[in-house]
Simulated scan of single mutants.
Amino acid sequence: MKILAVAGSNSDTSINRQLVTYATTLFENAEVEIVDMNDFEMPIYKHQREVESGIPQQAEDFASKIDSADVLLVALSEHNGTYSSAFKNVFDWTSRIKPRAVWNEVPMLLMATAPGARGGLGVLEAAAKRFPLHGGNIVDTFTLPFFNDNFDKAAQKISNEEKDSELREKIQKISAIETILEK
């Protein structure tokens, strides 16, 4: 099974990257690639720019990574209740590649974390509504509130046993779906 892990942040210290990286360790016998949004930095999407210059190679590369994955783990950082601008720009450019849908129906576990009580719930809700319109096959969602209290940075894992168990159940669910699809 090939897992593509996307942290929807360009921060070098992204807590969502830490979460999605940890989630990848919960799969058995998987090939994992963790995407760094900094590798997909492009001009801000503008229709006129697309007409004049076409779609940047970075968007094509991002789409290729999605297409080669069996499972997507997407952990989104929340900026003012929605996606980070770095993620949104990659999403916008990728959505312009025809005739594809951005997520190409690859089974996805959608996640978010934040330092506060909502744990990125705003961005999770926005993505859960938007992604299916772009080929998002969201199998489940997971949010980790109070990241600094519920994630052991030294051990690089969720320290809250209840939330860790919840994530493990969701990983098992998406693993089972992928196993069925392989047959």
Rank of each mutant, 00 (worst) to 15 (best):
N29Y: 06
K65I: 05
R168F: 13
S84L: 06
V35W: 14
I174R: 00
A63M: 09
I180T: 14
D164N: 10
F62D: 04
V20A: 14
V20S: 12
P145Y: 04
D12S: 14
I15L: 03
V123W: 01
F40Q: 03
K163C: 06
L167K: 07
E169W: 01
F146V: 15
D39A: 12
N29D: 10
I158M: 09
F131Q: 03
K163F: 10
G119M: 01
N160S: 14
F147R: 11
P145C: 02
Q58S: 06
G119I: 02
K157N: 08
A59Y: 05
T141V: 11
L144W: 10
L26R: 04
G54R: 00
I138E: 13
A114P: 15
F147D: 11
S175M: 14
V32Y: 07
L19W: 03
D36A: 12
E105C: 10
N80H: 02
I180C: 06
V6H: 01
F151N: 12
S95W: 10
K65T: 05
D70A: 07
I66M: 03
L144S: 15
Y45T: 07
P43Q: 09
G136C: 02
V139Y: 00
K173T: 00
S64V: 04
R130F: 04
L181V: 10
K2N: 08
I177V: 11
I174N: 02
K46A: 00
T82E: 05
N29H: 07
I55F: 03
T179P: 01
A75W: 00
Q48H: 12
G81R: 05
K65P: 10
D149M: 10
N38M: 14
I3W: 05
A128V: 11
A86W: 01
A7W: 00
A128D: 12
E41P: 13
F27N: 03
V123G: 03
N150D: 09
T141L: 08
S175T: 14
N38H: 11
L124N: 01
E178D: 13
S165T: 13
D164F: 05
P115H: 01
D164I: 07
M42R: 06
I3S: 06
P107N: 07
L109T: 15
N150G: 14
E50T: 05
A154L: 11
L181A: 15
K2S: 06
S165L: 14
V74I: 08
K153A: 06
P145A: 03
I44V: 15
D140G: 05
L73W: 01
V102H: 00
R100S: 00
F27T: 09
S14F: 14
L133I: 07
A154E: 15
G81L: 02
Q156A: 13
G120C: 09
F142C: 08
D140H: 01
T13N: 02
K65L: 12
P56Q: 02
V71M: 04
S95N: 14
M1A: 03
E162N: 12
A59L: 06
H47N: 12
F91M: 12
K183M: 08
L121Q: 11
G135Y: 03
W103V: 06
V102T: 08
K46M: 00
V35F: 11
V32I: 13
K153R: 05
T21H: 04
G119C: 05
V20Y: 05
